[in-house]
Amino acid sequence: MQRFLNLLRQETYPNKESFRRMLMESDQAKEESYAVSTKTIGREIDFMRDEYKAPIYYDDSELGYYLTDPTWQLPFQTPDQEEFFTDLFALRIANKTIPAPLRETLECLEEVQQAALAGSPDDLQAMESLISKDPRIPEIAPEIYKAVLTAWQESRPMTIHYRGAGGHKSERQVDAHALYLGNDSWYIHAYCHKAEGFRSFALHRISKAEISDGFFKKDLKVINKIKMGSPFSYKTIDNAEVIASPQVAQLIAERDWFPGQVNEWREDGSLCVRYTKVAEDILISWVLGYGGELQLITPPSAVDKLKEKLKKLQKIH
């Protein structure tokens, strides 16, 4: 049924009869014969729905099936010993960043993985030395996270009571297409029917969440956009250049702080980093965060904005 799922992700809306014909034509081309009836295909679809909770639904207007979540996958096979260790590593990291309501589930999964590694005490001992602390992530009310997680997983619309960063409260009907961790907080990137467009909502600012009737289809393009870049709408600047002092140059060079980073070492041990396009406010905050070890060189408009922020800081401190 993997071929059937691939057709669903391509939004070709196959039905039982069209899929049966496709299999038959494929068999003829390969000079093979694996006759499959529409009843068999129907049973397989029902099995995926019942056993694996596959989000497969029938569209009467398209006369075919589709996935409400294009990213859904069939469960993987049992991993080997090395994969168990890798999974346990991921669980240990996730347990520090995942919202509190889901941590109990992760701890249960971790116990299963540890049992699978029972014959490898060295691996378990190494895992105990893995320490991850991040107190910056706000806590989320269990009932809020449960409702949001269910709505996101099942592609169900929901009504939320939301408090914006400025304190303004509103009620909104939203369709959560993506759930992600960004800026030290958990967000949903959702289509907001009130704003008639996509917006990001911080889970810790949702005071009430109720799942509504019906379903929506996740937009794979929107999901991929989240994966490739930031979902936030920041003003961007072109051809930014920052000089890192010798004291922090190696630290800055060790990772790409923003997409498209180009590093150029200088004779005095400092580092020049360049970005073709970058969010202005985030870049300025990054420069300020290093307390004088980073110097913003270009563009002039961003330098002026940085100076204004410095004047404001000096005035209030």
Rank of each mutant, 00 (worst) to 15 (best):
I188E: 03
E210K: 11
H189I: 07
A202R: 15
Y191R: 02
Y187V: 01
G197P: 13
A195G: 00
I211R: 04
K217Y: 04
I206L: 04
E210L: 09
F198H: 14
I211S: 02
F215T: 15
A195Q: 10
C192M: 03
I206C: 06
A209N: 00
G214I: 12
F198C: 07
I206Y: 08
A209I: 00
L220H: 12
K208T: 02
Y191I: 03
H189A: 04
R205Q: 15
S207I: 01
I206Q: 06
S200T: 12
A202I: 04
Y187W: 05
F201T: 12
K218W: 08
Y191Q: 01
S200G: 05
S212P: 00
R205F: 05
C192F: 02
Y187S: 02
K194D: 01
R205G: 08
C192G: 04
A195H: 08
K217R: 15
S212G: 01
L220D: 14
S207V: 03
A190N: 05
D219H: 08
I188S: 02
H193L: 03
A190G: 05
I211L: 02
H204A: 11
K217T: 15
D219R: 05
R199I: 11
E196G: 01
K217H: 09
D213I: 00
C192H: 02
G197A: 06
A202L: 08
I188T: 07
Y187D: 01
K217V: 14
L220R: 13
Y191T: 02
F201D: 10
K208P: 00
I206T: 10
I211D: 00
H193W: 12
S212W: 00
E210Q: 14
S207G: 11
G197K: 07
D213K: 14
H193P: 00
H193E: 06
F216V: 11
G197C: 10
S207C: 02
S207Q: 06
I206D: 06
S207N: 04
G197N: 13
E196I: 00
F215G: 03
H193R: 13
F201C: 11
F215W: 13
F215D: 06
L220P: 00
D219F: 08
E210S: 07
A202G: 11
G197H: 08
S212T: 09
I211E: 02
F216E: 10
A209G: 01
K218F: 09
I211V: 15
I206M: 14
L203K: 11
F215K: 14
S200W: 12
F201M: 11
C192N: 12
R205V: 12
F201E: 12
R205W: 10
I188N: 03
E196N: 13
I211G: 01
K217I: 14
K218P: 08
H193K: 10
K217E: 14
R199T: 12
S200R: 03
F216S: 11
G214L: 09
G197I: 04
R205N: 15
K217Q: 15
L220I: 15
S200F: 12
F216R: 05
S212A: 13
R205T: 09
R199H: 13
H204Q: 13
H204I: 08
K218R: 13
H204Y: 15
A202P: 06
F198W: 13
G197Y: 08
I211A: 01
D213W: 01
F215A: 09
K208S: 06
A190I: 07
K208Y: 05
G214Q: 09
A190L: 05
R199M: 13
R205I: 08
F198N: 06
A195C: 01
A195W: 00
A209H: 03
G214M: 07
D213F: 05
F216W: 11
S207T: 14
